[in-house]
Simulated assay, not measured.
Amino acid sequence: MIPVTTMQGARLLRYGTPADMPVQEVELPALQPGQVLIRMAYASINPSDLAFLSGQYGIKKKLPAVPGFEGSGTVVAYGGGWSRFLVGRRVACASSSGDGTWAQYMVADAKGCIPLRRSVSLEQGSSLIVNPMTAVAMYNIFEKGRHGALIQTAAASALGGMIRKLAAVNGRPVINIVRRDEQVNTLEEQGAQYVLNSTAPDFERKLAVLARKLQATMAVDAVGGALTQQLVGCMPAFSTVLVYGGLSGEACALSPGLLIFKEAQIRGFWLSLWLQKQSALSLMRLGWSVQKHLAGELKTEVRRIYPLAEIHAAIEDYSRQMSGGKVLINCNP
């Protein structure tokens, strides 16, 4: 039995601007078999959320809809089947269809819920899926490809820090690319050995030298635009660039000659599709494994927490400084 029938939630009325997203009363749908109702504790804000709000993401929902792709909370009801064992459990949760996490409650597929260890707080659990699982999945692709070193753009981000720490634990070199000198200084203070500023006049020369020296034949690119072509041009032949973001807002620039004469490969990575390929048991095991490292390699630094009623201030804060720590929404303050 569902304990509530309505809730407060942020509702996106049209794509393009968060201004068209009032916090208002939303009716909860009936639970279907395999679904659970989660009383949300915290929800995170990620670049994918901003892309969704603008209508530029790979998922478009019928509007009005509650945004938010990940969060954490407690399961309070279930729709039947094996999901009964989740009732009363604290979980990390994800949304790809229907209303999302920026609300007091969310109806979710039980398969997408990951029970939290006692040692993991609801704050950390709210950022368990998008960044940590993307970092683990892409780093595993790097390891399986037997590349000499990894190049990553947007290296000052939370996800960039996770990839860097995973590589450090395994003794693998990473070339970190950022956009500002202060980010170079920050990463070097954190122990990063190779950090380059993509706006520096000698950026391409330094990247080419390092990529050749370290045999950096794989890159993960969150920026796109002209930077994608710069990566391919500086990397050795037979290299692979994994594009997983478009922070530049521009199409990836690619010269046919680079693809042909270097036999470079450009691939996409989308966590949603990757997760769909995993079984419920595999996801549970992965989630359990990721939680072991939330205090170390996969830790998320939280900069500020806003109540749901201040969702617009939270989005503005995060948009202004996306690499300055995670901004969370307290869904039930």
Rank of each mutant, 00 (worst) to 15 (best):
residue 287 G to D: 02
residue 223 V to Q: 04
residue 282 S to W: 12
residue 177 I to T: 00
residue 226 A to P: 09
residue 244 Y to D: 13
residue 234 C to Y: 04
residue 199 T to C: 11
residue 247 L to Q: 06
residue 162 M to S: 05
residue 277 K to G: 14
residue 284 M to F: 13
residue 153 T to D: 02
residue 205 R to I: 13
residue 267 R to H: 10
residue 173 P to N: 01
residue 210 L to R: 01
residue 200 A to K: 00
residue 170 N to M: 13
residue 256 P to V: 10
residue 180 R to S: 14
residue 271 L to Q: 02
residue 156 A to T: 10
residue 204 E to M: 12
residue 252 C to Q: 06
residue 166 L to W: 03
residue 155 A to H: 03
residue 275 L to P: 03
residue 194 Y to P: 06
residue 183 Q to G: 03
residue 200 A to M: 05
residue 175 I to N: 07
residue 183 Q to V: 10
residue 276 Q to V: 09
residue 223 V to D: 00
residue 234 C to A: 15
residue 232 V to T: 10
residue 229 Q to K: 13
residue 200 A to C: 07
residue 238 F to Q: 11
residue 258 L to W: 01
residue 285 R to K: 13
residue 193 Q to H: 11
residue 275 L to D: 05
residue 275 L to T: 08
residue 158 A to I: 15
residue 276 Q to L: 14
residue 278 Q to A: 10
residue 156 A to N: 07
residue 268 G to E: 02
residue 276 Q to H: 06
residue 203 F to T: 07
residue 158 A to V: 13
residue 271 L to R: 02
residue 169 V to H: 13
residue 210 L to S: 11
residue 177 I to E: 00
residue 199 T to W: 05
residue 168 A to E: 08
residue 251 A to C: 05
residue 241 V to C: 03
residue 278 Q to H: 09
residue 271 L to H: 00
residue 208 A to L: 10
residue 254 L to M: 13
residue 269 F to A: 06
residue 208 A to M: 08
residue 224 G to F: 00
residue 275 L to H: 01
residue 207 L to F: 04
residue 193 Q to T: 14
residue 222 A to C: 14
residue 243 V to P: 00
residue 151 I to V: 15
residue 249 G to Q: 03
residue 153 T to M: 03
residue 263 E to Q: 14
residue 273 L to C: 09
residue 253 A to G: 09
residue 274 W to N: 10
residue 184 V to S: 04
residue 260 I to Y: 15
residue 157 S to M: 06
residue 229 Q to D: 15
residue 163 I to V: 15
residue 210 L to P: 04
residue 269 F to D: 01
residue 256 P to K: 04
residue 182 E to N: 08
residue 280 A to I: 11
residue 165 K to D: 11
residue 229 Q to A: 15
residue 284 M to G: 07
residue 221 D to Q: 08
residue 151 I to T: 11
residue 180 R to I: 11
residue 170 N to Q: 15
residue 209 V to L: 13
residue 162 M to K: 05
residue 178 V to Y: 04
residue 249 G to H: 09
residue 185 N to H: 14
residue 186 T to D: 12
residue 245 G to T: 08
residue 262 K to D: 07
residue 285 R to Y: 07
residue 217 T to M: 08
residue 277 K to L: 14
residue 196 L to K: 01
residue 282 S to H: 04
residue 184 V to E: 01
residue 156 A to E: 00
residue 233 G to V: 02
residue 268 G to I: 08
residue 246 G to F: 05
residue 210 L to E: 10
residue 254 L to S: 04
residue 193 Q to V: 11
residue 193 Q to I: 11
residue 254 L to F: 09
residue 200 A to L: 06
residue 179 R to I: 10
residue 172 R to C: 09
residue 275 L to Y: 00
